[in-house]
Amino acid sequence: MGMNHEHIKLTASEMSVLWTSYLNDTLGVCTISYFLNHVEDPDVRAVLEYALDLSKKHIEVIRQIFSNEKIPIPLGFTEQDVNVNAKRLFSDSFMLYYIQNMGSAGINSYSVALPVSSRMDIREYYTSCLESSAELFNRTSNVMQEKGLFIRAPYIPYPNQAKFVHKQHFLAGWFGEQRPLTSIEISFLFFNLYRNTLGTALLTGFSQVAQSKEVRQYMIRGAEIAKHHSAVFTKILSQDNILSPMTSEILPETSKEPPFSEKLMMFHTAALTNSGMGYYGASMGGSTRKDLAASYSRLMIEVAEFSLDGANIMIDNGWFEEPPSAPNRKDLAKG
């Protein structure tokens, strides 16, 4: 018997990562097209153009895969979801932080998508996505460093020898003397603070341009949560006298003219919220001080409640596109 050359179908995990990628890339095209219409700095424009080109290429590849498999192409986001001529809402500096974060989020999501893919063409696609996300992150970081906008994680003195922990006190964190933060804990605290600062700026912008009261209030609440979480991380760092440098250059302009549909802003917020929960989970796993783990679990609950309320708003308004799902065996049994 020769090899079986039957067509290999997509697995559920391949379908799910491609479907999610498609929605995220169509969202990317909308937001970046709007940014490109307002950007002034040529260096920032070059980075935006590279990011837009990546998203457009990704959309083409996924459309091709879906049509070959006869899977309906998701609607995602289209020209109906963006008004590129709306007044400027975000500064060039914000655009840089946004794109740098997009590169970083891409590296994160593609490093999850690649190991759950089995078909060779899908693996090759996600390998190239990983490379181009790293390139996007590096290009943006270089521009930010040239412009003095890059925010570095805090510095601590180098250790002078390798050491092992000999006291359980290392895990303590409730009463009495807390041990100083490890470099791993500092890194998690800093990057969670960084993402929340960006989140505050984005959701503040969204709250200004949201048309419905429900979406506006949701965005205000999201910005408040992000502000509160930033304050928690800043406080923990400052207890160890670690300064957390942040920028005020990313706050939105005063425009109230909506560049984006409510559906797009809600989805964008959901995507940020979900990735934020993932980062908190990882941070919890990497922080051995009990008080830190407790803080993360408390913040995660708050984010989960916010996320659930957002999903309800999206479902009520018919904005929640359903991912490919398993057949309902109960319905099938009824015949």
Rank of each mutant, 00 (worst) to 15 (best):
M1L: 11
H5R: 13
H7N: 12
H7I: 10
S16G: 13
V17H: 11
W19K: 00
T26P: 01
G28S: 15
I32Q: 01
S33Y: 05
E40D: 12
D41F: 00
P42D: 11
V47S: 15
L48M: 09
L52A: 07
D53K: 06
H58P: 00
H58E: 10
I65A: 10
T78V: 06
V82R: 03
V82F: 12
V84Y: 09
A86D: 07
F94T: 00
M95C: 08
I99L: 12
G103A: 07
S104E: 12
I107R: 01
S117C: 08
M120F: 11
E124R: 09
C129L: 14
E131W: 08
S132A: 11
N138E: 15
S141M: 12
M144L: 10
E146H: 03
K147F: 02
L149A: 00
Y155P: 00
N160H: 08
A162F: 09
Q168D: 06
L181I: 02
N192R: 03
G199F: 00
Q208S: 12
Q211M: 14
S212R: 07
R216E: 15
R216D: 15
Q217E: 15
M219E: 03
A223M: 04
S230R: 11
N241C: 06
L251R: 08
S261W: 04
L264P: 06
M265V: 04
S275T: 08
G276A: 15
M277W: 03
S287D: 01
D291E: 12
Y296V: 02
L299S: 03
M300I: 08
E302N: 10
A304K: 01
N312W: 12
I313K: 04
D316E: 15
W319H: 09
E322I: 05
E322N: 06
P323S: 13
A326M: 13
G335M: 13
